[in-house]
Amino acid sequence: MQKMSPLTRTLGICFLFLLPAPIFIVFVASFNGSAYIQFPPESYSFRWYVEALTDARWARAVGTSLWIAAVTASLVTVISFLAAYFTLRYAPRINTALELAIFSPLFFPHACMGVATVALMANFGIVGTPWAIILAHMMVVIPFSYRPIHIALRSVDPDLIRAAEVMGASELRALKDIILPMCRSGILTSLLFSGIISFDEVTVTMFLIGPDVTTLTVQIFTFIQDDASPVLAAISTISVVLTFIAIILLERVAGLSFFVQRSGS
């Protein structure tokens, strides 16, 4: 690769490392020893982690977020896979229209999305239940799930499944033996990517929580508004670590090239 000018390079490096800076500051502040948030801290301790981990409210919120993310990711991945497979094999002509519909939530400001979903869930009578949050998350993440799966499926030679069928395999068997193993990275990308987004979603979710159900990020948000106890820094760090683990996992099992792939190719 060619060189770039020193100025651009320096700017690039500076800006790049500004990106994680606020997260890093939260991380450092979480080891703060004093009763209010300080950066840089004057003393260090684990007291906020102890408090975070012993407070049942936080443990519950982490648990809720994790299982909602898991259910959302699994459902949305199955739905995307079936739809992408059906469209590519049986109805390539509806592909453009379907993608337009699937990607349309992306062009919806999140505030509108929040009000729209809370209105719908209120009609269903499920606001304040985990199902409202899961359904809303599914609408938010569907484009992020459909794309990697569609790309993976499209790259599988369609004759492979026909070959399996000629050899006597039922469609289901051919899917299991041939297509699924070959789309592994696309499916894992969908699972992890939509799981991460669901876990960290807050703008839409905060409209849908109830007295019994709240997610980790919404609870952090509520607490920041109420009081800025340093326990939030510890909790935030925990959520960052969970997200970070998921991203590293994604890098290991499927690679990150998906994120910088043009959709057209």
């Binding site: 030679d157 004759d159 492979l160 026909r162 070959a163 399996a164 000629v166 050899m167 033996d177 041939i178 193993p181 070959m182």
Partner: peptide, 12 residues
């Protein structure tokens, strides 16, 4: 039985 143009062998 069928032999495909691109053969469609299972790569895995």
């Amino acid at each position: 039985g069928m032999v495909f143009q691109n053969l469609a062998l299972f790569p895995h």
